[in-house]
């Protein structure tokens, strides 16, 4: 089987989110990558080095600069003339593009797979991970999004693939990129961090979040996250949200501070290796999944913890 993997990037660097998808694709067959963007030759160069990649297709066109699905999907459909499976990371970019490709190919997408069980059989979580479904498709072309935390990252060095230019991109004219507000942070990225400290409604305010959660994260070299309640209350921006409808994370250590442990939050972090919970309510559901719990007032515990580390 010949697979085509959508490379996630910002026209300058290849994002780590691509690497687990390469691992998933390699279980199906030969791996080709697609770098679609504008002025993104450097990304293609990085892509050629990923271990196990056979070929890198480079589509460099102004219409592709912002990954607009209206412009990228037709290009992918063309490439699918000689590929059997299209795989994208289950990021907001992948989730935006892949179903559009699937519909144009008249196939059902397999969303957010967590394992490849055969050439047509996959496992995926449903109901926010409260149930796991094994599914088999009858479509002959596959369109798949891959949950990054479920597969090892392919090595980003060691490969020596060739680059092939792809032409024929055009602007569908129906959508235009206006602006982006991207949060710049010195901290590790949430979805690839080894340690995450998350704050919930219990933290109380944005000021408290800055005064308590961030210093603890800095001591641990951790990324910072939040529950939906903390995001909705405006303590932190939306891209901090962990959960069914936020980011799915699986770090070595996840520290939940003032988070009750609603099923929608657990859906995003329960595959973490070690979960540590700090909550004043000893019956909070988070303690049912936590490996280490500390019952008490976070306003006392967190500063003390930060100072003792």
């Amino acid at each position: 089987m010949k697979t085509l993997v959508l490379v996630e990037h910002d026209n300058a660097t290849l994002k780590d989110a691509t690497l687990p998808v390469v691992t998933a694709a390699a279980k199906l067959g030969e791996v080709h990558l697609l770098v679609a963007g504008k002025g993104c030759a450097a990304v293609a160069e990085q892509a050629t080095k990923i271990a196990g990649v056979g070929k890198v297709h480079l589509a460099d066109d102004a219409a592709l600069e912002h990954q607009l699905p209206e412009n990228i999907a037709p290009l992918i459909v063309d490439l699918m003339g000689h590929h059997d499976a299209f795989l994208a990371p289950a990021t907001t970019t992948g989730k935006n593009i892949a179903p559009r490709v699937a519909a144009l190919l008249d196939v059902m997408q397999l969303s957010d797979i967590i394992s490849v069980d055969g050439p047509d059989t996959f496992t995926r979580p449903i109901y926010a991970g409260n149930a796991i479904a094994q599914v088999k498709t009858s479509d002959t072309k596959l369109v798949i999004t891959v949950r990054g935390t479920a597969f090892e990252k392919a090595a980003s060095e060691g490969g020596s693939a060739s680059v092939e230019a792809v032409s024929g991109a055009s602007d569908a004219g129906s959508a235009r990129f206006v602006s982006a507000e991207v949060a710049a942070s010195e901290r590790p990225e949430l979805t690839s961090a080894k340690i995450i400290v998350s704050g919930g409604r219990g933290v109380g305010s944005g000021e408290n979040y800055k005064a308590l959660i961030e210093p603890l994260a800095d001591k641990l070299g951790a990324a910072v996250g939040a529950s939906r309640a903390a995001v909705d209350a405006g303590f932190v921006p939306n891209d901090y949200q962990v959960g069914q409808t936020g980011k799915i994370v699986a770090p070595e250590v996840y520290v939940a501070v003032g988070i009750s442990g609603a099923i929608q939050h657990l859906a995003g972090m329960k595959d973490s290796k070690t979960i540590i919970a700090i909550n004043k309510d000893e019956d909070a559901p988070i303690f049912q999944v936590a490996d280490i719990g500390l019952v008490g007032d976070l306003f006392q515990i967190v500063p003390e913890l930060t100072s003792k580390l």
Partner: peptide, 26 residues
């Protein structure tokens, strides 16, 4: 187009331990 072969419970996480102080947590 997709057939569901089976649906199962995810592996359950066991509740762990509770520590009594910040020092223990450290």
């Amino acid at each position: 187009r997709i057939e569901t072969l089976n649906v199962s419970e995810p592996p359950k996480r066991q509740a762990g331990i509770k520590v009594g102080s910040v020092d223990e947590l450290v």
